[in-house]
């Protein structure tokens, strides 16, 4: 069969590839709030007053940034459910919480992304002068409001380039999930190439789709940065 027939024909693999591409994007987008949010919490813990908390959060970052993402995903993917079961048995809950492969994949990615984005948030938090928080507190804002109204709005702008980098890493890391269980873009390409013995065509197509995602992400990031930097010299 011709390349076009294999991709777009009635018996072609194009539809599976597109479905996989959607899964890849979905994995990435769903991970963002948890991964980036987790990173922000982690950054907060790193700047904590208590030594033990600081140490634990540093240890988390060191561990997950220091080992291959493939290994980290594997450990979280398989370790997590056991920990959950253990916790539920301890708490004596009757029904067990079951994670789908997709959800488990999102959690595994979030754990890794939190470690990466935590560093970005820490650097961003350091750019906000402590005087601002003091000023906000002296105006009568409590700690929570001082953070959400004064510090957080400024963080986004400073953290944006770094978070953009983490996003591109995340988008590519979703491909590692393909070695676990989820039929993402790379997995779909792999199935197609094994069934048709045409690896160059299908891995090439997958690479092209990833490249489109990456170019779109860069354009999106540039637009966001322009918007965030309005009114700032």
């Amino acid at each position: 069969m011709s390349a076009a027939g294999l991709l777009f024909g009635p018996d072609g693999w194009g539809a599976l590839l597109l479905k996989g591409a959607l899964v890849t994007v979905a994995l990435g987008l769903v991970t963002v709030p948890f991964g980036f949010g987790g990173g922000l919490v982690l950054a907060g813990l790193k700047l904590s007053r208590w030594r033990a908390v600081r140490g634990l959060s540093e240890a988390y970052t060191t561990f997950f940034r220091g080992i291959p993402d493939l290994l980290a995903l594997f450990i979280v993917y398989f370790g997590l459910q056991s920990l959950l079961d253990h916790a539920q048995a301890t708490l004596g809950l009757a029904s067990r919480l079951e994670l789908s492969a997709f959800v488990a994949g999102v959690i595994a990615l979030s754990v890794v992304v939190a470690a990466y984005s935590g560093e970005v948030w820490v650097a961003a938090l350091r750019t906000v002068p402590p005087g601002q928080v003091e000023a906000a507190r002296s105006l009568g804002l409590d700690r929570k409001r001082a953070f959400f109204l004064v510090v957080l709005p400024q963080l986004g702008r400073v953290a944006l380039p770094g978070l953009g980098n983490v996003w591109t890493v995340l988008l590519k890391d979703t491909s590692l999930i393909s070695t676990l269980a989820v039929t993402d873009l790379l997995r779909a390409a792999s199935e197609a190439s094994k069934n048709t013995t045409r690896p160059i065509l299908f891995y090439g197509a997958a690479a092209a789709i990833y490249l489109v995602f990456s170019i779109a992400s860069n354009a999106g990031q540039a637009a966001l940065e322009r918007r965030a930097n309005r009114g700032i010299a």
């Binding site: 240890a59 370790g79 056991s82 920990l83 079961d85 253990h86 539920q88 048995a89 067990r96």
Partner: peptide, 13 residues
């Protein structure tokens, strides 16, 4: 931390 994860993995219900 790694050891803690390992310990958790031993447990099954």
């Amino acid at each position: 931390l790694a050891c803690g994860l390992a310990a958790g993995m031993g447990a099954r219900t």
